[in-house]
């Protein structure tokens, strides 16, 4: 899932400092699961903003709504009437949701309340970690199910580099060396010979370097 984190409330407040009434839109998708922009977080953000503005003697009116998914036009459409009389929309979704709102309500000022961090999963409650680099050309079958594109700080495909020591990456003792993990796993699977195969460079045109990507499934298209 997409992992996002809230921006500091004062930063969000600064984006809407000239507004009298705003709509805060949460999202029931990924950001609910990672506790950044679900219904509860949206209500808390709204009340924090109201309190801040009240203390400044410049009260703010808020309306809140949590969409099933902000990355889907049919759920964004449901905001309809709520948008009309607000000065701005604060999205508590990932960057996709913010853009869907901005596209749908193109005469409204739409601001992000979250920083979209990465795609990953949770380890223990309250902890998430990055697992996929969205490279568009998965190679996990060659690296023991561990992604060097995003988990190696240098995205090395023929690792480990000379900075790997005691299982950790050179950038920090808190970061596992992805290639040590790959080595350990391949070793346990009896497939170390695979690591001797030369891995060619990535085709980055399948990643962001090919421009914004699209995925099409004609078999499920309705029109």
């Amino acid at each position: 899932m997409i992992i996002a984190q809230q921006k500091p409330v004062k930063d969000v407040a600064a984006m809407i400092s000239n507004c009298k009434k705003v709509l805060l839109v949460g999202c029931a998708g990924c950001v609910t699961v990672c506790l950044a922009g679900g219904e509860k977080e949206t209500e808390v953000m709204a009340s924090s903003l109201r309190i801040m503005r009240k203390m400044e003697d410049n009260p703010l009116e808020t309306v809140t709504y949590t969409a099933t998914r902000q990355c889907d036009p049919e759920y964004v459409d449901m905001l309809g009437n709520m948008v009309q009389d607000v000065d701005a929309i604060v999205s508590l979704a990932c960057g996709v949701g913010v853009q869907y709102l901005a596209e749908r309500f193109n005469d409204k000022w739409v601001v992000p309340a979250l920083d979209t961090k990465f795609i990953g999963g949770s380890t223990v409650h309250g902890n998430w970690e990055e697992k996929c680099g969205l490279c568009g050309d998965c190679i996990l079958h060659r690296t023991g199910g561990i992604c060097p594109i995003i988990r190696c700080s240098k995205s090395i495909l023929n690792g480990p580099c000379g900075g790997s020591q005691y299982g950790k990456c050179e950038i920090s003792k808190d970061v596992d060396c992805a290639w040590q993990l790959i080595y350990d796993r391949m070793s346990a699977l009896g497939k170390l010979d695979k690591l001797m195969e030369f891995q060619p460079p990535k085709d980055w045109s399948k990643s962001r370097d090919g421009g914004p990507r699209k995925a099409v499934r004609e078999d499920v298209m309705i029109d």
Binding site: S153, K154, S155, I156, L157, N158, G159, C161, G163, E170, I171, F198, Q199, P200, P201, K202, W204
Partner: peptide
């Protein structure tokens, strides 16, 4: 890694690795 240098906020490239 750029983290150690005088431009820690820069973007690294690593389009290809040393082996390649």
């Amino acid at each position: 890694h750029q983290k150690f240098g005088n431009h820690p906020t820069s973007k690294n490239v690593y389009d290809i690795d040393s082996m390649q």
